Amino acid sequence: MTEVVWTDKTGAPEAQFGDFVDLLKPRVMRLVLFTALVGLVCAPVPVHPVIAFAALVCIGVGAGAAGALNMWWDRDIDAVMARTKGRPIPSGRVEHDAALALGVTLSGFSVVMLGLVANVFAAAFLAFTIFFYVVIYSMWLKRATPQNIVIGGAAGAFPPMVGWAVATGGIAPASVLMFLLIFLWTPPHFWALALFRNDDYTRAGVPMLPVAAGERSTRNHILAYALILAPAAIAPAFSSVGGPVYLAGAFVLNALFIRGAWAIWRRDEATAAADRCRVEKRFFGFSIVYLFLHFSLLLVEAGLRAAGLAAAGWPVLF
């Protein structure tokens, strides 16, 4: 039987439901939801499960809205990058006006609903996060400076603070430490990606660090950030959300992260080209696991505290 594909008047296939889901960047949304969940669970104020679920839905929708607006704005550069040319807009599956309408609608919906189910501060924080990612990072920094991901990475670091704000209506040193963990992790994570996707960014004219400063400088920056990240990543162990389990895990993870950054730093471009950036790709993959495990350890500590098994006398400095 011949499969029938519905088309619009121009002959292009009509957008399917899955195409609009792809606009929301579901993989990024999962990370946002997980880190927001950790911020919410680790907060000292309990939240009713129904309210917590509704709040996380709002945060996830807000993250998806920001993703759709990012794809709407970046449709020109997405079309020339191998990594992104298959996205819904450059591939012709979704009209850019539809992506804009979806992003704006979901942004408003997520912020208003979070204000209703949680509190105004959390809703305002979510609105600021969407604005920061779309306007500050996507529209301004991304094409203007090689420090784009350094500053713009704050957008991806806000979700645990939003989750914390859902529970408490404010911020605290522990939530700021969770922010710093993601904020300082973001540059080496994306610079590793940029090393083996350098041709993409060059073709698109995006001044990622390897394009603007060269690959040697990028390797230096990755190692420097790994060294700066380590103490910031270990610091939550001595906050109200940490403990000995987190400390042990964070110590191992950061030792491995620094070792990976050192391996990248030692390489020259001829070697990297010969093995198709195998080390850089491995570091990029590990960096995702690295972040997931840090926040998983915070969940473990929260579970131990809830069960009354937290270490007595553990120093809390933050």
Rank of each mutant, 00 (worst) to 15 (best):
L37M: 13
G62E: 06
D97V: 01
K85Y: 13
D74E: 15
F109C: 01
K85M: 15
A52W: 13
F121T: 14
L100D: 00
R87N: 07
D78E: 10
V134C: 05
V47N: 11
A36Q: 06
G62A: 03
F132D: 05
A124N: 04
V45P: 04
Y133C: 13
V112N: 02
A65M: 07
F34R: 01
G60Y: 09
H48L: 13
T35Y: 07
I77M: 15
M113P: 04
I130V: 12
L126Y: 11
A127Y: 03
S91D: 10
V41I: 15
V50D: 11
V61W: 07
S91Y: 09
T35S: 14
V57M: 11
G39K: 06
A122G: 13
L126C: 09
Y137G: 13
F128Q: 03
I59L: 02
I77D: 08
F131R: 02
G39P: 06
L40C: 09
M113C: 13
P88K: 01
L102P: 05
L69F: 03
A98P: 00
P46G: 10
G39T: 12
A127S: 07
V80F: 05
P49R: 07
A99F: 14
L56I: 04
W73N: 05
I89N: 01
M81H: 15
G103Y: 05
W72P: 00
I77E: 08
A63Y: 05
D78W: 10
L100M: 08
F128E: 05
V32T: 06
T35W: 03
